[in-house]
């Protein structure tokens, strides 16, 4: 517990009557063996260091994901070596590879089956945007059209170190969450959908082609002619 995160909770969530404890005071108390923390810190600290990924490989990037969990790169150093085969036991969906239109409904279904809190990493160019196969007729142009993505890791394939870096970034992101208010993670917000609509293969394409709640087409802004 000695490495519990130190940033004090943001003042907005402190009861008005209590003055916020300073870092120096905390450090002093810790020296005397008294650990002061808040529920929020404990929650995000525990959450961020036990992110269990789903054992789910899609394409080439999955091989680098496996390599990240092997001896040389050793994802266990970051508390994420427990690859769970069942989505019911997993916290993290690493979309490691090309999502085709045939596979997209299953990916969304897996995401729906995972219990909250859950996070998603889009690993590799394909998961982010379709990558080298973007021009093709059967490749989804980014998994973020259907499910919310927390971390994007570019590369084709990203090196295992890049995946580890992405994981550390995710941990930082989780540590920044609050339990209430606008900084709360998605699943603690009232507006959270919970279930994401699973696309169906329609007459010509996936229907709907994207989930308007998580993605909308970027608007093109033309530069003014000077």
């Amino acid at each position: 517990m000695s490495d519990a995160p130190t940033p004090p909770p943001s003042p907005a969530h402190q009861p008005a009557s209590l003055p916020a404890i300073t870092d120096a005071e905390r450090a002093e108390l810790r020296r005397h063996g008294i650990l002061l923390t808040s529920l929020q810190e404990l929650y995000t600290w525990g959450n961020s260091h036990s992110v269990w990924p789903l054992n789910f490989g899609l394409a080439c990037c999955a091989i680098e994901m496996i390599a990240a969990s092997m001896a040389k790169f050793d994802i266990a150093r970051f508390g994420s070596e427990v690859f769970r085969p069942s989505p019911r036991q997993a916290d993290l969906l690493i979309v490691s590879g090309t999502v085709t239109k045939k596979m997209a409904p299953q990916v969304v279904r897996l995401w729906n089956q995972m219990p909250e809190p859950k996070y998603c990493i889009a690993m590799g160019a394909c998961a982010i945007s379709g990558g080298p196969f973007k021009q093709g007729y059967n490749v989804l142009k980014g998994i973020d059209r259907f499910i919310p993505v927390d971390i994007y890791i570019p590369g084709c394939p990203p090196r295992p170190e890049a995946l580890l870096h992405g994981l550390v970034q995710l941990q930082e992101k989780i540590k920044g969450f609050t339990i209430k208010g606008p900084d709360a993670p998605r699943h603690l917000q009232k507006a959270d959908a919970g279930e994401y609509p699973v696309p169906e293969f329609g007459a010509r394409d996936l229907e709907p082609p994207h989930n308007p709640a998580v993605w909308s087409a970027p608007t093109l802004v033309r530069a003014e002619k000077s």
């Binding site: 394409a59 596979m103 093709g136």
Partner: peptide, 28 residues
């Protein structure tokens, strides 16, 4: 077909050399 990435069709739309990186991604 869950990973059908239209490799062969793409091979017809890019130059001969342009297909070389795609062949890497066949049997990765």
């Amino acid at each position: 077909g869950y990973l059908h990435r239209n490799h062969e069709k793409l091979g017809e739309t890019v130059s001969y050399l342009g297909s070389m990186p795609y062949t890497d991604r066949l049997d990765y």
